[in-house]
Structure formats: structure tokens, C-alpha cells
Design a protein around this nucleic acid. Structure first.
Lengths: 358, 358
DNA sequence: CTGAAAGCGCTTACAG
DNA sequence: CTGAAAGCGCTTACAG
């Protein structure tokens, strides 16, 4: 049932360039020129063709044009989670702001490509894009090879990137180490680390990617204090990267008889939940419990008390990844790597450890 | 420069089905079957083909396959603003969560399609999608006709939708009217309305779409109180839909000698900024100034004081739009319309008007 | 200025 | 089970 303005042929299909050519008494070449290269035909012919095209409601087919041009005009973002999870996470929103700036500038669209049947690998062949930004590839289960097979440029972000592939990463290790050192220096020893969940490959490969690097940095700071992640007063808990999961995890920790004196959330969104849990349970922050985050989302500076966290330039990360990808699509870049800073930002949510009663 | 695993032919192009067929000594048909319909060829032939394909690093071309199948496997979201602006707005994040659920369920990807050279219309022909969700089309400048011409299904959301087109909308008018009545009932008369910016068509067409409907609702409530939008103590200001723009607008209003007793922000993100401005200037909320929002973003329940606002089910909106679109793509639906509720949610940020000193 | 032809790669009835 | 052929629509050197 065609709507208004939608012209169809007798057989129910949309008009094609062939139909227009026939109706206007010209070749398909001429029709194509009328749309794409007006200078190549006479004004009169062009006018007639356009008129006929209008009457038939003709529009060049998008996909056919892409096939001829060998170009789609869109960038893909290969995601480690489903679109709903990603959109719930302000980290990704910020990342996509940066990537979106590149799209804006280049006139490109952005294709969100979630795992297909839980597999990033399987999603790769179905996306009509000129290149991929690959996010959070903690373990390469063949994705890199598959992308190479498609012969499509790509940039790895927040991943475990081999040397020969363009990548953008953050100095997660140094950032986490600095924060942990900050907490230890404040006298904290009973510390809970709230990690966002590792991917499904954790069992097999251990902690990898940004999470792995942050934990390495934490270990290093602990070792400098003669401790380790296995120390009895250090605790590592995983939670989904949502505020409510952070709330629940922190609530459980703080409700115990021997609550930690500091919570180090490995992402701000978890820290926000922890802050609310502290508020709910009547813990003064930072007097009774310190809360630290990671990322420095804009919200971190708005909450009360303002959140002590590790700043990473997420928007920049997206922009750089986009720039690298565009360069690669143009065949300009070799294998650029960018390592972005991660810096400690001390605000109000951390302070000296409370005196332990037990 | 091919990377590891990327096989190319002598001429530098990727291997095609033709190359595989030649190398395996079979027809292109057989190659296609090996990948798509294994039952149609013998196991031995298939094995040989797959082996050769592997050696050559062959992968069926995504776009060519789309052209044959007449199907892209992705939904488009036609946006009224650039991707950066959209991603900065939690409203859209929430909307995309809902739409993303549909993608998840159907195994589809999601293409973000921002205006091309400031025109939604111009962006339509270049997106390889099976259908569009069109957001915030305040005035139809030919977009609907263009979509019909492409012969592609679409659903209008937050738009001015004609009867014959599928649409999802919210009872903005009723919601805004309820909020305005609430404020008037609390005794407020000096009220500033913080509107998010209308599109560029405002000059020519006046307020349309959700903003127009909200203003209509507000007018109605004012009229019931013997007032109107032109009343000297009622003020309408526009601001970009960001927290900082809300902050600045509210700051300017509250810093005046005769500040309003109530701020009605037409989106929560603006209300958040207003709350911060009040805090900054030492205005107690709601004792010295009431602040109301619209949308009921999750944050609205977390801020202190908790925000009085109008709830609309944004995630549901996205999901319903996605469902409508998928049904239309399957040719199942006629012209479904959904009107979602908008309900007043009174929390802590509104209270009786302060006594005016002037 | 105009058109016949080859090309972008893949798929899929159809015939054997 | 296998392949020649037509088809998905558009583009673009090339020749006239």
C-alpha cells in the first residue's frame, strides 16, 4: 500500500533507472548523469529526465549506489554489549559524542553494531560500513582476523591491541595506581574495589583490557605499601556497570559489621551508586567512608560531595578513534597509536580513613 | 598494505566469489551455496570450497549481499540534530535504550542518521536501512514525501504526524497543563518557563511538535486562572537542551531583583541546571523558588531535592516505535498510532510560592 | 551531447 | 548434485 508520493510500477515495485530511461526515451546512462553529473548532458534532456523521474517517484537505490561506489558513507562501532546496555552507560554516550563530531565533520552516519548472538565476531560480516571502531575487545577471539578478511579499516579502542593495528587507549594502569596510592596515603587499609563486570572471557584469560590494566595499577600501589590484592582487608567485587548495581554492591558492603573505610569504584557510574548507598545508610562521605571513581564523567563534578576520581578524556578518545579511522579509510595512515592520559582528580569524596573500632 | 589474515589478489583487490570458484574449479553458484545453503551441494565440494575460500581470505561482500537480498538488517534513526548533540542529551540515550531492545530482539543494527548539511531531508537518500524512525520532525518540509519516495517504511516520533503515517507521541499538552495547574495552585504567579530551543522553522511556523503542545497545555492552565502566556509575570525563555544552558538561563533569572517564584523547565536536563543555579545563588528549593521539570529522567529521582516533573515513558516510546517499524517492514501493520501518557509526578522541588516582597 | 557495454559482487530460480 | 543465466540497480570509462 503505497503512501502519498510513493509511485510504484504496475508490478508493485518501485521505479528504477531503467523505467525512467524508458519513459523519458533515453539511456540509463543519461538518467544517472541527470542525478550525478548534470554537466554531461544537455539542460533540456536533464529537465525532461528529472520531470519523468518525479512523475514516477524515482529515487536511485541507496544500496545499489553503494555497491557501485564501493563506499557506504558510514562508520561502524563494534560494541561489546547490546545497544540498550551501551545507551544506559554515560561513558559510551560521551565516547559517541567524540566519534559523532568526526561524523559531523565528514558527513558520515554512524552504525551501532552490537554482538550478534552474543558474538562480536559474528556481527562483523553484516555491517555495511567503510570502517569499524572496535570497543572493549578484551580478548581477540578472531575478530581482528575477521576484520582483516573483510578488508576493512578499523581502530581498536579500550582493547588489547596488537602492535600492527591502529589503537587508542588510556593510561589506565597509571591512573588506577595513582588513585590507590592516594587512598593508601590517606590511611585507608580496609578498601573495597568495585569493578565493572569483565567480559565472558575472564574465566579463561583472566582480567584483560582496561579492567585488567586498572587492577594491575592497583596491585602496584598495594605492593608499594607492602600489600596486595589478596590482602585480607582488600576486597574485589564485580557489578554490572549501572548505578543501581553500584548502589546494591556498596549497600551490601557498608551494611556489614566491618565496613570498608574506602570504596574505589572502577567507573564513575558505580561510584554514583556507592555515594547513594552511603547516603541511604547514613554514612558521611568522606568522614566515615571515602568514595572514589574512575572516568570523571561530567556528573562527577556535580554530585555532592563532588567525586574524587581519575580523569580520562573519553570524548577525545572517541574523536581520535574517529580521526584515525577516517585517515585509514582514506588510506593515509599506517598504524597510529594514541595513549591518552589518566590523571587523579581529588575532590571532596575522599578523606583520611576513619579510626576503626574493631 | 594488507594486514595479517587479509588475503588479496595480485591486483590488490580482495578475493571475490568468482576467484574462489575459479580456484576451486566450481561455479559461483556453488560458492554461494557453500556459504548460504550447504544442503544444496555435496559435503566434499563444500569442504573444498570453504578451504579455498579460507586460503584466499574470501568473505562475501556485505553490500552486494544486501543488494541481492533487498534487505539491510538495520534500522535508521533520523535525527533532528547532530550526533554529538543527541548523545549529550540523556533523553535520546533513554529513547535509544528502548529502540535498542527491539534491535537486540530482532538481531538488527542501528544507524544514526544526523541531518546532512543541516537538512534531515538530504540525509534520507544515503542511509542503507530497512526503515526509519523519524525523531522530532516539527515541520514536514518534504521529509515524509521523500521517505515515501524511497519506498521505505517509517514511524514518526515526537513529530507533527499526519493521520496516514505510523506515529508515536506523548500527551505533552495534558502533561504540561497538569504541571502548570500544580504551580498555579501552589500560589505561583511569577513563573518563568524554560523551553528547549525550537527548531529553525519556528520563525515561519511558530511552535510545533512537543514544544508547541507543551506550550498549548501551559496556556490552557493559565487561561483557567485568568492569565495567559503574555501575562506580564509569565516569562518564556529558550535555552539549548543542555544542563549548562539551563544553569545559565536560570542563573540570569534568579539574579534579577524580581526573580520568579517558580521555574518550569520543559525538559529535566534544563531543570537540573536550574537546580544548580538556585543552589549556587543560595536559593532554597522549594522554599524560595520552586523548580519543575519534564520527562522524568532517572536522575530526577536522584537529585536533592528530588525533582517534581512530568513523567513520560521515553524508553517505552523507543520500544513502541521500534515495534511499529519492524511490523511495517514485515508489511504487517497499517497506520498504527500510539499516544503515551504524561503524568504529573510531585516530589520535593515544588512548594507554595514564597511571599513576594515587591 | 548521448548510448552500448562492462562493471560493482552476490543470489537464486531454472534446467540438466 | 551442479552450472549457465538472469537478476538485484546503479555507475562510469569508452566510443561515437
Amino acid at each position: 500500500m503505497p503512501g502519498p508520493g510513493q509511485a510504484v510500477r504496475p508490478d508493485g515495485r518501485r521505479a528504477t533507472a531503467r523505467d525512467v530511461a524508458a519513459a523519458a526515451g533515453v539511456s540509463r546512462t543519461a538518467v544517472s548523469f541527470a542525478f550525478n553529473d548534470p554537466a554531461r548532458i544537455s539542460a533540456a534532456t536533464r529537465k525532461r529526465i528529472l520531470q519523468v523521474a518525479d512523475d514516477l517517484g524515482y529515487r536511485p537505490d541507496t544500496v545499489a549506489r553503494m555497491l557501485s561506489h564501493r563506499r557506504t558513507g558510514s562508520l561502524g562501532v563494534l560494541l561489546p554489549q547490546g545497544i540498550p546496555e551501551v545507551m544506559e552507560n554515560p561513558y559510551y554516550a560521551q565516547f559517541l559524542v567524540g566519534l559523532g563530531q568526526v561524523c559531523q565533520q565528514e558527513g558520515l552516519t554512524l552504525l551501532l553494531v552490537p554482538p550478534l548472538r552474543d558474538s562480536m565476531l559474528k556481527a562483523i560480516p553484516y555491517a555495511a560500513v567503510d570502517g569499524f571502531v572496535v570497543c572493549g575487545l578484551e580478548v581477540d577471539r578472531g575478530e581482528v582476523a575477521e576484520l582483516n578478511r573483510r578488508g576493512i579499516p578499523f581502530v581498536l579502542v579500550d582493547s588489547e591491541a596488537p602492535e600492527e593495528v591502529p589503537s587508542v587507549d588510556v593510561a589506565d594502569e597509571a591512573g588506577a595506581e595513582a588513585m590507590m596510592a592516594h587512598l593508601l596515603e590517606l590511611g585507608h587499609r580496609r578498601i573495597a574495589i568495585l569493578a565493572f563486570e569483565a567480559g565472558p572471557d575472564r574465566e579463561q584469560y583472566g582480567y584483560r583490557g582496561p579492567l585488567g590494566r586498572r587492577l594491575t595499577g592497583i596491585s602496584r600501589a598495594l605492593e608499594a605499601a607492602g600489600m596486595s590484592l589478596d590482602h585480607p582487608t582488600i576486597e574485589l567485587i564485580e557489578a554490572r556497570a549501572t548505578k543501581s548495581a553500584g548502589f546494591e554492591a556498596a549497600h551490601r558492603l557498608l551494611a556489614r559489621p566491618d565496613p570498608p573505610t574506602a570504596l574505589f569504584a572502577l567507573s564513575d557510574i558505580l561510584a554514583m551508586g556507592a555515594l547513594d548507598a552511603a547516603y541511604e545508610l547514613g554514612f558521611a562521605v568522606p568522614d566515615q567512608v571515602s568514595v572514589a571513581g574512575f572516568d570523571d564523567q561530567p556528573e562527577a563534578a556535580w554530585v555532592r560531595p563532588r567525586l574524587t576520581t581519575v580523569r580520562q578524556a573519553v570524548e577525545t578518545k572517541g574523536r581520535v578513534a574517529g580521526d584515525f579511522l577516517v585517515a585509514a579509510i582514506r588510506g593515509q595512515s599506517q598504524h597510529p597509536h594514541q595513549l591518552l592520559q589518566a590523571t587523579l582528580v581529588v575532590r571532596e569524596s575522599t578523606g583520611p580513613a576513619r579510626i576503626l573500632t574493631s
